[in-house]
Design a protein around this nucleic acid. Structure first.
Lengths: 229, 229
DNA sequence: TGCTAGCTGTGAAACGCATAACAGCGTTCG
DNA sequence: CGAACGCTGTTATGCGTTTCACAGCTAGCA
């Protein structure tokens, strides 16, 4: 009954890469963009690692997945490395994203993506509130959720963000899967039950804040401690 | 120069518990609350595990950290287990939280915490915009960021959420640390550099969405594969 | 009342990831 | 011109977490 948990390793390009590596590569690329913007030409592994808050060894290991080799004397060429990571991570063309739920959080997400991330664009919004549908929001058309299936298929959207109340999230997710979505980013504080071929990522703000509050009550980095039996 | 990464194990109560365990305990408790609300009295490990999307063995192992033992025949008593997890996780009294940045995201966070989470309360908001400070927002006073130090110390706030633009995040974090904050939840897409005794959690929506988009392009659960040399 | 079934709690193995250690190489300085 | 230095790419080691496997127990039933 309880399905065995599938491996977190997924096939990417030619190699098989862990989720953690993908996240770090995304992070490295963003830092490289900032470096390029500030005019930096070359960077050493220990510098980039410090900016990403990882060890230099881990950084180099992660970069093994990307087809690029740095120079022992100059380090990595910022722009070239950025492009190589992009070649590994990026979709062949712009990827369309849908947003469900145009409340406070939904609008914050819109603001978040204004301008940047040309390869990821919110091209459709959905809601249930009549006051919010059938108009433009930040240059993006909004529809009633009942139109999701049609719109998503027409526009070839396979990624969606869920920013609706917890009670509605599972139903929305089912609708989206039915509409052909391949992966989801869920902000509602409910664990979604979905078919195994749909990738789901949960951003659970409530849980995360509780975690942060929990760790506020202790001395952070406790290494040594008298072992009590 | 590159400081060695400290252990992810932190001391909690009498035992030393991993971050992952804490997150899962928080999740279990929320599910138990829902179960109690819906009138369920008892629950078996495999049922609760299925709801939390973990294996039963892992659930039982996590519960070893809590001082509670279930019955082999009835399973766990929902209300009692919830209380035991609470005794392990919860602060002795209400914990005060500050919010910096009252933009779209900040307001979404306010909406998120309205009513629920009595033990975690946003008691002060900060911003830099004169139009947003020195008034009440959702029953919570908002101040200019320059007053952070005074207000935080007076009210004994040691947890804060950062919801400001990336460019301002580091400066805000420094101010908060100066004001005595013990742990931070950061929504800005910058890696904060902070002293090692301050606990930081990053919720990086941009990175997460890129990750989700990345995994939308592959067949999710690929176990077998012809090994290519 | 003795036996079976099914669950919990926990010791032990397995797996994956991060860290440490090493080989290769281009530059630089004696 | 040679040798030492410092960085990269890669292989081995260690550690933490997850999974496996089993002992113990309680209710139910013949």
């Amino acid at each position: 009954m309880t399905r065995k948990r599938i491996s977190k390793q997924l096939r990417a390009g030619r190699r098989t890469v862990s989720e953690l590596v993908v996240v770090r590569l995304i992070l490295y690329r963003r830092i490289l963009r900032d470096l390029a913007f500030s005019g930096t030409r070359y960077v050493f592994s220990h510098q980039l690692a410090a900016l990403a808050d990882v060890t230099p060894e881990q950084l180099r290991r992660d970069l093994m997945n990307v087809r690029y080799e740095g120079s022992p004397t100059r380090g990595y060429e910022v722009v070239v490395l950025e492009e190589c990571i992009g070649a590994f991570l990026d979709p062949p063309s712009t990827q369309a994203v849908a947003l469900v739920g145009v409340g406070n959080l939904g609008r914050a997400l819109f603001a978040y993506f204004l301008g940047r991330r040309p390869l990821l664009q919110i091209v459709a919004a959905f809601d249930i509130d009549p006051a919010k549908v059938d108009r433009m929001i930040n240059g993006c058309p909004s529809y009633h959720i009942s139109e999701a299936r049609t719109v998503m298929r027409e526009r070839g959207i396979n990624v969606a963000m869920i920013a609706v109340p917890a009670a509605a999230a599972q139903s929305v997710a089912d609708t989206l899967v039915e509409a052909g979505v391949r992966s989801l980013l869920n902000f509602a504080d409910v664990r979604l039950r979905l078919p195994p071929d749909v990738y789901v990522e949960h951003i659970d703000i409530g849980v995360t804040l509780e975690k942060v509050a929990f760790f506020a009550r202790r001395p952070a980095g406790v290494e040594r401690e008298a072992g009590s039996p």
